[in-house]
């Protein structure tokens, strides 16, 4: 396997594998968030479990961070390399004639997702880390009851934040609309199941971000 990951195809595999990992994480994330639509108590219990379980906190969370950082860094490295493969640009290029906007602009949708992630981390992850590991309060309680559901609702009171999150999820959908199929192709999976997979990929790319949008809107209108 020496030199595999420094080759162009090896880098494709690496991008695809990290994409699969992140796409699986998105399912977990949206499923947990969707619980908040139905039951405050169940959402609190699930959040407390996720936020205090050592396996999730000290193994899964760092692995996830690594996956996110790797996918972004690798994406930018590949973009720089790819741009350097054409020194003189075309005076006229009709990209729309042969490819989708999403496929040609993964770097821009990815960049917007990165900006969104920074905001999302500042909103939720950093305050959580501060409460648990700097203040040292692992109880998950505030005024005698679990704080998670109320914190979630409180965050989505300002309409500007809801709008910002919706825009972030739209870019996520655009990224996934190409990324899902692309990951399979990169792993060499182009066969009789590809047509079905493309359909599933479209559904995944639209439904997952849509679910996140519904959750944000739900808490904005129901706080």
């Amino acid at each position: 396997m020496s030199g595999f990951f420094t080759s162009s195809i090896g880098r494709k595999y690496a991008m695809a594998l990290s994409a699969f990992f992140l796409m699986f994480f998105l399912i977990m994330h949206v499923a947990l968030n969707a619980v908040s639509l139905f039951s405050e108590d169940a959402f609190n219990q699930a959040s407390h479990f996720m936020g205090t379980n050592p396996l999730i906190q000290f193994l899964m969370q760092p692995v996830l961070m690594l996956g996110v950082v790797f996918h972004f860094v690798m994406g930018f490295i590949l973009e720089i390399k790819n741009r350097s493969a054409r020194v003189v640009k075309y005076a006229k290029n009709n990209g729309a004639a042969n490819s989708t906007w999403m496929s040609r602009n993964m770097i821009y949708s990815g960049l917007f997702i990165l900006i969104f992630l920074v905001i999302h981390f500042l909103d939720f992850w950093i305050p959580e880390i501060n409460t648990k590991y700097i203040v040292g309060d692992m109880s998950g309680l505030h005024d005698g009851s679990f704080r998670y559901f109320h914190e979630l609702q409180h965050k989505f009171i300002p309409i500007w934040r809801v709008a910002l999150y919706c825009i972030g999820f739209i870019f996520l959908a655009l990224h996934l609309l190409h990324g899902f199929d692309s990951a399979f192709q990169s792993l060499g999976a182009n066969n009789k199941y590809t047509k079905g997979l493309k359909g599933f990929g479209k559904a995944y790319a639209i439904l997952i971000p849509l679910m996140f949008i519904i959750i944000a809107l739900f808490h904005h209108f129901n706080h």
Partner: peptide, 8 residues
């Protein structure tokens, strides 16, 4: 460059 599966 690297292929990004645009299909163009």
């Amino acid at each position: 460059g690297n292929c990004t599966n645009t299909g163009a």
